[in-house]
Design a protein around this nucleic acid. Sequence first.
DNA 1: TGGTTGACGTGGT
DNA 2: GACCACGCCAACC
Length: 109
Amino acid sequence: MTPETHNFFDRVYDVVRQIPFGKVTSYGAIANYLGAKRSARMVGYAMNVSHDKDVPAHRVVNRKGLLTGKHHFEGTHLMQQLLENEGISIIDHQIQNFEAVFWDPSESL
DNA sequence: TGGTTGACGTGGT
DNA sequence: GACCACGCCAACC
């Protein structure tokens, strides 16, 4: 059923799954790649439903490199631990050297 | 059917 | 440089 063009959400999931190991991206970057950069909030909303999907939502942060969505994860610091497990340094919910680990789908895809 | 929401982003103060 | 206010736009109730 051509899941790529089905829902905006599925498209977001597809992009998030393509995020390389040890890299992160922002909601706006994903939305921008989908041609709906004005709908960055929708990307975050999609993550909220990504529970049933195999989507590494922990690799998606806001433009500031802040783990804003960590509160929605199961554990308190699960999101941070997952990122640290990939070699990303996080201090006070903020990704250190954010530009170095930032992955822009618009430039990589 | 319509109004509120929200894991955001940008711009202005 | 930090804080505040507005805008967007699809999903949810």
